[in-house]
Simulated scan of single mutants.
Amino acid sequence: MIELDDTDRTILRALVQDATQSAGALGRKLGLSQPATWRRIRRLETAGVIKGRRLRLNAEALGFGVTVFLGVKLARKGQVSLEDFERAVSAIPEVQTVEHVLGLYDYRLRVVARDLSDFERVLRRRIMTLPGAGEVEANVLLSEERLPGPIG
C-alpha cells in the first residue's frame, strides 16, 4: 500500500470532482508546479491508486429514463460456468455493469432502458434467456447521489 500525504489526498479529491483537469491547472490550485503535480499523479497511477479516468454519460439525456438494479441467481450452478454467464450478459448493450457478488443473488446488474416496457423487453428477451439465468429481483433507481468514497 502506498503512503499518501495531504497533497496526494487533495489531488485525488480534485480529480474525483473533475478528472479532465490538466496537471498545470491542478497544480496552480494547489500551489505546485505542473511537473510536480504530474509526477504525483503518475505515481498514484503507477501504484494503482488511480485506476483510470472514465467518461460518465447522462443516460437520461440519451433517452434512457429508467435504471434498474437487477439481482440474478443462477439456476444451474455447476452446469453453466460463471465465465459463460458473464460473457453473455456483458454483451447486452443495456447492461452497464456486471458484479459477481456474495449473498442472496450471484450477480448484480445495472441495466438502463428507455422506459419500463423497454426494461421488460430487455429482461424477457435478453436477460432471462441467458444460459443459467434463474431467479431475479429488480430494484428501480429513483434518484442517485454521486459520492466519491473515502480518500483518507
Rank of each mutant, 00 (worst) to 15 (best):
R146I: 14
A91Y: 00
P93W: 05
A138Y: 00
D115C: 07
D6Y: 01
A133H: 00
L30A: 07
R53D: 02
F119I: 11
G152I: 08
G71H: 09
I2E: 12
I2C: 01
T10H: 07
D84T: 13
A59G: 01
G31M: 10
G31T: 10
K73R: 10
P131R: 15
I41S: 05
S22M: 06
R125C: 05
V89Y: 03
E145V: 13
R87K: 14
A75Y: 03
A14M: 11
N58H: 08
L147E: 10
T7R: 06
N58V: 07
L123Y: 11
F119E: 12
V49C: 08
N58S: 11
V111C: 03
T97E: 15
V98P: 00
L82E: 15
Q34C: 02
V66A: 09
R110Q: 13
E145M: 07
K73T: 14
A36F: 02
L104Q: 13
V72K: 01
G78L: 09
S90H: 03
G27A: 09
G149H: 05
A14D: 04
D84L: 12
A14V: 02
E94C: 02
T20M: 00
A59Y: 08
L62E: 13
R126A: 11
R56N: 08
A19F: 03
G149Q: 08
L74M: 15
Y107C: 03
R39F: 11
A75W: 03
L142A: 10
L102P: 01
A47P: 05
S33E: 05
T46W: 00
R28I: 08
D8A: 10
R39S: 13
G78R: 09
K51R: 14
V98C: 05
T129M: 08
L116W: 07
A25M: 05
E83V: 08
Q21L: 15
E135R: 15
D8P: 10
L82P: 04
L30H: 07
L32Q: 07
V136H: 09
L130W: 11
Q96M: 13
Y105G: 00
G149T: 09
T46G: 03
R125E: 15
I50N: 04
R9M: 13
R108G: 00
E60N: 10
V98Y: 02
R87T: 14
E86S: 12
Q21C: 02
V98S: 02
I50W: 01
